[in-house]
Write a protein that binds this DNA or RNA. Structure first.
Lengths: 199, 199
DNA sequence: CTAAACATGTACCATCTGGTACATGCCTGC
DNA sequence: GCAGGCATGTACCAGATGGTACATGTTTAG
């Protein structure tokens, strides 16, 4: 086994575990037992428990950034259709554990608990910029694009929280469609996906 | 001091403390030290640590239900104005610690941690019913009212999460206004705020 | 073959946690 | 005045936790 490979494997398994069992009451011993190793190994590979947290949080954030690039590269023609396919993707039950973990880290960051708090900086803005850009490219007036994007992020997260708690797929889907239908008629559609050369 | 009074005082102080410092890493000793008593007292009044959690969660939920009745009794004429004053109220910085606590308990409940998980049952529905009723009474078509109310709850919670993280008052307010303006023209206004005598 | 770096395991420690037995004060009803 | 219930404090216990010293295998480079 290549050096560092065991660490990578441990980290992947650890993330899978905390996605299902939570991060806050994680113990090195409990995690090690579930992963078929000893807590000594976790200390060895990650330095300390906080080091493990850092590794987990960084990896989760990295996956989130990968997800952002997905929404930007959506091939749909209209903003409404882009939102629909994005929602279909993000609301899939296979992603629920990861989203629960995201909200768990979010709340821990709100409480100022290190090392999660550093996540707060980009937890909205990193989504806002590409979302506003996409909205503007698809017909939302420049003056409204940023507020509209911010609203879109809030709707997505709010409905995800709803879905995770109630598991009421039909009800939450209807609410999302209610939002999409609300703006579907308001914007003129994609402005040929133009990239303004004048900035 | 009347019997049970000390317990009430301790509970109020404890809620104030967890609203600022979080619930997950709460220790009886740490809390007692901050409250000027001993962890022995907390065990005495609440039976156990889990008993303290139950007391805190029930009290927080009760305050939330009081908040629900406020939104129902809004005196505003239009749905948009009702939403605006509700948002002005709920987004006040003095309530941020309580809202952080709400989201913290929400996430713990998502992770199935007792005794928070019992909260999941009504965490959306208890808001949905009165909100849908209010929406319908103010001009939203009956077929859309429930989805619209659900969307309203999601928008509120999503933007609160945003506000708690970014503290960008102007940006979040603009997003909320973006949403309100989006439906302001669509519904015909209050149907005389009628109270159906036939039930 | 060997030495060094890495991985893994065992055993232990100091600390913190929730819980509880026991004692003491304090107020109320008789 | 006194007896009983409640509030409060001290001291302790058993368990879990994170961390670490030490030892042993295992793989790789020379």
């Amino acid at each position: 086994m290549a050096p560092g490979d065991a660490r990578k494997q441990l980290l992947d398994d650890a993330i899978d575990h905390v996605a299902h069992h939570g991060l806050t009451d994680l113990s090195l011993r409990g995690l090690a037992a579930e992963l078929g190793t000893s807590h000594r190994m976790l200390s060895h590979h990650f330095g300390s428990k906080e080091g493990l947290w850092v590794a987990i949080i960084r990896e989760v954030e990295q996956r989130n950034r990968a997800a952002i690039s997905e929404v930007t590269a959506a091939p749909d023609a209209t903003l409404a259709d882009a939102m629909r396919s994005w929602w279909r993707h993000i609301s899939d039950p296979s992603l629920w554990p990861n989203e629960r973990l995201f909200f768990e880290v979010y709340v821990q960051a709100l409480l100022g608990r290190p090392p999660t708090s550093e996540l707060l900086d980009g937890i909205v803005d990193s989504w806002l910029d590409p979302a506003a850009e996409a909205a503007e490219a698809m017909g939302v007036p420049p003056g409204e694009a940023r507020a509209f994007a911010r609203l879109g992020v809030a709707v997505t997260r709010g409905l995800l929280l709803d879905l995770l708690a109630t598991k009421d797929r039909a009800g939450v889907d209807a609410a999302m469609e209610q939002w999409i239908a609300g703006f579907e008629g308001r914007f003129s559609g994609p402005t040929a996906a133009r990239v303004d050369p004048a900035g």
